[in-house]
Write a protein that binds this DNA or RNA. Structure first.
Length: 770
DNA sequence: GATTTTACGTA
DNA sequence: CGTACGTAAAATCT
């Protein structure tokens, strides 16, 4: 093995430290000349750093067998070095002391460990630290270039970290932290802060499962106050004092604009437990970050690392909760001017304002909850158990022994060893990936054709999934389930996501993936009915307008406002698609041909491949290829829309949806990136449309009607039976919107259904034309 | 006990 | 080689 020495000018201000030499480094005797080196060079140039002006080193100086750094450690977690590595770390120490660069950049976890003794590159990257190896030496860690090669999304973070390193290379000092954190205030001091704070105030809560344990406040990045309310389960203050504390918080929330990081949690908690709601929500830094950097992580620690120049504080969470809480508040208020500038520069003020307006609705919907029919749940649970027992009996008879069918390992052994069925492999994302044996649905479906057991396993899985995820749910003492709607939950933006509520952890958590047959458990409040309103063919309409497919656009326009029965009879786009494909009149299209049309339209809008189409239609690969070719031949507008999207990506990797929401696509250049991009505008625009409509309906009529459920392109509202007609009319007023696209005006129609139970609703056949 | 993998539900 | 999500249970790591 070749010894690879440190190279570069002795007067360099920046020293880059990697992990160990690889194959090319070993051959040439120079650091970072292989694939990782190429990536490093291009990333450095994006950051405005000239590699030739940097010292470049590695922690280990010889290539380890199989390029595995573990070779130089006693333990798998790479914290106990063998003597060889200890020697090299000492060599690195001597070199740093000799050259004294203004900053040492640790590339990856091994360099981070060698220079600072820390483990966990994701927690420490982007923060300026003092080296423990060389006292007084400034260090900044980031990902290893090879990690960026594997996960291309890390490139942006790497470049931002390098720009910070470039700034810090101008001087050797570690910035002095002059911030003051008051974590043991007296009652009077805390109240004085609440009553005298000026301007926007950041508020951050720490909580046990149910109660607030610390309140952190900051109006100035250099000062934060944090007061403890709970020590374990014991109150820190007499009841009278705690009331005084919350009254002070209430006065503050009345008087001052409030800033939070994730108000969907903090503001919901404040309202639910203490009936405090900030009168003026100035900024949710999570939403602000979502609007300007939807493609990047958004946790406070990450945002601070790329926007601010403060020391890392997240590790305090396990040591000093008060200090942690205070620093959260200080970091939050420090982010405000930076995010304001970013929003302005990106021209995203209207998108930010829109997301801020949605906070109240999202919080309301979380706390409101959905009623559950617990008797139905119990009946369904029994049915599931019954079915599972039957299936298990059959399976034991067929397999000769008991098996845990939830365990992929055991099912693999059963199918491919005991039964000797042909191995099925997972579809790979790229040819370089290793082929992996799978027992997923597709594999079992294929195997079901040659053996009865895979089919039984599939049946069993479906029932087990239904039971564990959707039927076996706990309800609140009020008999309800709750979900947390996350406005910043999707990296695309526009759509909300839905997850388990921390405040009211009842039900299945995500309420946006309840299957049809489990929806029968959910009911409108007693004496009310659900009204479901869903956008008709929403994404397909958007795609038609983006393609400027005038025939389809005319079909959507002509059928607008029609009763669904008439639309289905005369303006069925899937039957139309089939008639074009098979070159036959629309009324001669058979149901089978219609299905082909429907599947192909959906698949082609988002550039699915022949394998998927073959799978979906149950045809051979070559038949699927022929169908796809025919579809694209008849729909050349779709292809040219796809090409236009690629063109836009080439320009600046940025797409803008129908409401002006921006998204940058940072992934590796290729088909996968294109497919993400094709999906972006339709998906995010429909999400924005629904949320804009739901919010405006809530603002106008939220006191009369309850907005209960959000399903990406549909909302469910509860109303008294005698007010259904009025509610439907008002919902339609808010949901029908004219949206400009390509010099045309797009309108997406809305269908309605009504019922006491979510799973049992009747479609209304209303004619909205004059 | 925390994190990752496998599998699968929705729009 | 549709996209976007979140969760349960098993597997794996520490």
């Amino acid at each position: 093995m070749t010894f690879v020495p440190t190279e570069g000018p002795p007067t360099a201000n920046i020293m880059l430290v990697g992990e160990a030499p690889g194959k090319e480094e070993d051959m040439t005797g120079r650091p970072f000349v292989g694939r990782a080196g190429k990536t490093l060079n291009s990333l450095l140039s994006y950051a405005g750093i000239n590699r030739a002006e940097c010292l470049i080193a590695n922690v280990a100086r010889e290539r380890p067998p199989a390029n595995d750094i573990k070779y130089y450690f006693h333990d798998a977690s790479c914290t106990k070095p063998k003597s060889q590595l200890v020697e090299w770390v000492n060599l690195l120490k001597e070199e740093i002391e000799q050259y004294r660069p203004n900053i040492v950049v640790a590339l990856g976890r091994t360099a981070l460990w060698a220079l600072t003794g820390k483990t966990g590159i994701a927690s420490y990257r982007g923060y300026v630290m003092e080296s423990t190896l060389v006292k007084g030496q400034k260090v900044l860690a980031t990902y290893h270039p090879q990690a960026v090669n594997y996960e291309w999304e890390l490139a942006t973070t790497f470049i931002l970290d390098m720009r910070k390193a470039l700034y810090h290379s101008k001087f050797p000092q570690i910035p002095e932290d002059k911030r003051v954190f008051q974590t043991r205030p007296t009652l009077q001091e805390f109240m004085d802060f609440c009553d005298s704070a000026k301007g926007p105030v950041a508020l951050d809560l720490e909580a046990t499962k149910t109660h607030v344990s610390w309140i952190g406040l900051s109006a100035d990045p250099n000062f934060a106050i944090s007061i403890q309310l709970l020590d374990g389960k014991y109150p820190k203050w007499p009841e009278r004092d705690e009331i005084a504390i919350w009254s002070a918080v209430a006065r503050l929330c009345e008087r001052c604009p409030i800033v939070m990081h994730n108000a969907v949690y903090d503001a919901a908690m404040l309202w639910y437990r203490y009936h405090i709601f900030p009168r003026k929500m100035y900024m949710d830094t999570l939403l602000a970050a979502h609007v300007v950097w939807p493609e990047l992580p958004r946790d406070l620690g990450y945002l601070a690392s790329i926007c601010l120049d403060i020391p890392v504080w997240k590790p305090y969470s396990s040591r000093d909760m008060g200090l942690y809480n205070a620093q959260d508040a200080a970091a939050t208020i420090a982010l405000v001017p930076i995010l304001e500038r970013e929003i302005r520069n990106a021209g995203q003020q209207h998108i930010f304002d829109m997301e801020m307006r949605q906070l109240e609705l999202a919080i309301y919907m979380q706390l409101r909850g959905i009623d559950v029919d617990t008797q139905k749940r119990d009946t369904l649970l029994k049915e599931c158990d019954e079915k599972l027992r039957e299936l298990d009996e059959k399976l034991v008879a067929a397999c000769g022994r008991e098996i845990n069918f939830n365990s992929p390992d055991q099912v693999k052994r059963l199918l491919y060893v005991d039964l000797g069925l042909p191995l099925q492999f997972k579809r790979r994302k790229s040819k370089e990936q290793e082929r992996k044996v799978t027992t997923d649905e597709q594999a079992l479906k294929r195997l079901a054709k040659v053996h009865p057991v895979p089919g039984l396993i599939l049946e069993r899985r479906a029932v087990a999934k239904k039971k564990s995820s959707f039927v076996d749910i706990t309800v609140s003492p009020e008999g309800k389930v709750h979900t947390c709607y996350n406005i910043a939950g999707t990296s695309f933006g526009g759509r909300w996501s839905s997850s388990k509520s921390i405040i009211l952890p009842y039900g299945s958590g995500n309420l946006q993936n309840i299957p049809e047959d489990a929806r029968v458990l959910y009911r409108a409040p007693k004496g009310k009915v659900f009204i479901g309103a869903d956008y008709v063919q929403a994404e397909a309409v958007v795609v038609a307008y983006l393609c400027l497919d005038t025939v389809l656009m005319k079909m959507f326009k002509d059928s607008f406002g029609m009763p669904p029965s008439l639309r289905k009879k005369n303006y069925d786009i899937h039957r139309y698609t089939a008639s074009i494909m098979y070159e036959i009149p629309v009324d001669e299209v058979t149901p089978a041909q219609r299905r082909v049309g429907k599947t192909l339209r959906h698949a082609c809008n988002y550039a699915a491949g022949p394998a998927t189409v073959a799978e979906r239609l149950g045809v051979t690969l070559s038949q699927a290829r022929a169908l796809l070719d025919r579809y694209y031949e008849k729909n050349h507008l779709l292809k040219s829309w796809h090409m236009r999207i690629q063109q836009q990506l080439r320009q600046n990797r940025t797409l803008i949806n129908l409401f002006g929401r921006r998204h940058r696509f940072l992934g590796r250049w290729g088909d996968a990136l294109f497919r993400e991009a094709y999906a972006y505008i339709p998906q995010s625009s429909v999400g924005d449309l629904l949320n804009i409509s739901a919010e405006s309906f809530y603002q106008a009529h939220g006191s009369e009607f309850d907005v209960c459920i959000q399903l990406h392109d549909a909302i469910y509202v509860a109303a008294e039976p005698e007010r259904v007609d009025r509610c439907i009319r008002l919902m339609r007023e808010h949901m029908i919107r004219e949206i400009p696209v390509n010099n045309e005006t797009m309108i997406i129609d809305v269908d309605f259904k009504v019922g006491e139970y979510w799973g049992d609703m009747e479609e209304l056949d209303i004619d909205w034309r004059q």
